[in-house]
């Protein structure tokens, strides 16, 4: 336990020192601010640019547009950036051999993997919370009258999918030795999830539904309960992948 906490501290320190923490927070903060602003301003700018004589009637922007931006940016750019930043989570330590000394000081391999997952989870949670908070405040200010439905639950789904993806990434990192291999395997896992979605029956239980269905959620065209299966499976798989990562890493020759 002391080893786990010490290593977790080191991980957070490392992300701060290598500027990855800064990048993550700034990018998610920028998204958080631009989501509602773009939703509000884009129609107005386009409207003012239109030449005389031609009139395009732009539909009036709503809070729904701001949240559309939020989910689009956070799931696409946000998750991609997160995965890229974390892709070296193990490979850099293994290739350089920086873990050897700490392991010989009595740090357990389980603690290494769990601390690494905890750290990634903390950073992801902080990033998504920051992004959500800023979007929420701005949207509330810009579109005071509008309401969207199921917002907390859809953000929870997005967050959970991130946690699931980080578990996939961690397992990939343990299985492959390079950060590219890790990225490739994580990408392959996402593609596999998308392919599974072709089977209609699987859709309910597929973790990726957590991020593909959120528009329907905030529009209230999809029932919250329809995603319970996916929530359950994503949680279970994340748990399974982290446990597998621990078990495999314990038997790895360093």
């Amino acid at each position: 336990m002391t080893g786990y906490l010490a290593f977790l501290k080191k991980e957070i320190f490392e992300y701060a020192k290598t500027y990855k923490l800064l990048i993550l927070l700034v990018v998610f903060a920028v998204f958080g601010i631009t989501n509602p602003l773009v939703a509000k301003l884009l129609p107005e700018i386009l409207g003012s640019l239109v030449a005389d004589g031609i009139t395009i009637t732009m539909p009036k922007a709503t809070a729904y547009d701001a949240w559309t931006q939020f989910f689009k940016n956070a799931t696409q750019m946000g998750l991609i950036l997160t995965v890229i930043l974390f892709s070296g989570v193990l490979s850099s330590e293994l290739s350089k051999g920086t873990l050897v000394i700490l392991l010989t000081k009595g740090l357990s391999r389980t603690a290494v993997i769990l601390a690494k997952y905890t750290c990634m989870a903390l950073l992801w949670t902080a990033s998504i919370a920051l992004c959500f908070g800023l979007t929420y405040v701005y949207t509330h200010y810009l579109f005071p009258a509008d309401k969207v439905s199921n917002l907390p639950f859809s953000v929870f789904c997005l967050w959970l999918f991130g946690m699931f993806l980080l578990a996939v990434l961690l397992l990939s990192a343990v299985l492959t030795k390079s950060s590219y291999g890790c990225l490739l395997l994580t990408g392959a896992a996402v593609v596999a999830c998308l392919l599974v979605n072709i089977i209609p029956a699987a859709h309910r239980y597929n973790p990726i539904s957590l991020v593909t269905d959120k528009m329907g959620l905030i529009k209230n065209t999809i029932a919250v309960s329809s995603l319970f299966g996916a929530v359950f499976i994503a949680f279970l798989l994340a748990l399974l992948f982290v446990s597998l990562a621990v078990l495999i890493f314990r038997k790895k020759q360093l």
């Binding site: 080191k10 490392e14 350089k96 051999g97 920086t98 050897v100 000394i101 392991l103 010989t104 000081k105 009595g106 740090l107 357990s108 391999r109 314990r250 038997k251 790895k252």
Partner: peptide, 20 residues
């Protein structure tokens, strides 16, 4: 193998020590 309990008695200097 894979456990580190006995390492509490040991101090180790690898051939190429790598630090952060």
């Amino acid at each position: 193998y894979g456990e580190t309990k006995t390492n509490r008695h040991i101090g180790f200097l690898p051939d190429v020590p790598e630090f952060y």
